[in-house]
Amino acid sequence: MSLSNEAFYPVGSLDQFMIQVGRVIELNGLQIAVFRTSDGNVFAIRNQSPHPKGGPLAEGIVSGHYLYDPLYDWKIDLETGNVQAPDNGRVQTYPVRLEDGQVWVATSEFLAV
């Protein structure tokens, strides 16, 4: 995916994202879960579990840069979207930019609905 095809959108001020608590935003018709970690980083992933039965991720537990799926307890790396062994799978991640206290999330043009 080329960065030149991505557009960043403002999704709220940093203080609107509680530490270690997911928040769902809708962007270009997609539900995206945004997480602010205890070290001040912000990550955005698709709000859909990679588990075969699916389910939301925003209510998962955050520990470090990992999210624990609220339904299946799969451990997901917030940076890469990769599910950790012994499970496997991947969640779509989205670039995040912090600028002047605002959180911006990017999606690719081809994802727009």
Rank of each mutant, 00 (worst) to 15 (best):
M1S: 15
M1G: 14
S2D: 06
L3E: 11
S4V: 13
S4Q: 09
N5K: 14
E6N: 04
Y9T: 11
P10F: 03
V11I: 15
D15G: 00
Q20Y: 03
Q20R: 12
V21L: 00
R23S: 15
R23Q: 13
I25A: 03
E26V: 15
L27M: 03
G29P: 03
L30H: 10
I32N: 01
V34F: 07
F35I: 04
R36M: 10
T37D: 10
S38H: 12
D39N: 13
N41Q: 15
V42C: 06
F43W: 06
A44K: 00
A44E: 01
R46W: 02
N47C: 05
Q48I: 14
S49N: 04
H51Q: 10
H51M: 06
H51T: 05
K53G: 00
L57M: 06
L57N: 10
L57A: 09
A58M: 05
A58E: 11
G60F: 07
G60P: 12
I61R: 14
V62K: 08
S63L: 13
L67A: 12
L71S: 15
L71R: 13
L71D: 08
Y72D: 03
K75G: 03
D77L: 03
D77G: 09
L78R: 05
E79A: 14
T80M: 03
N82K: 14
N82Q: 14
Q84G: 07
Q84T: 12
Q84Y: 14
P86A: 04
N88T: 07
G89Y: 11
G89V: 07
V96T: 06
V96W: 01
R97E: 11
R97I: 02
L98Y: 08
E99W: 05
G101C: 07
G101P: 11
Q102T: 13
Q102H: 02
V103E: 09
V103D: 08
W104F: 12
A106R: 01
F110A: 05
F110Y: 09
L111I: 00
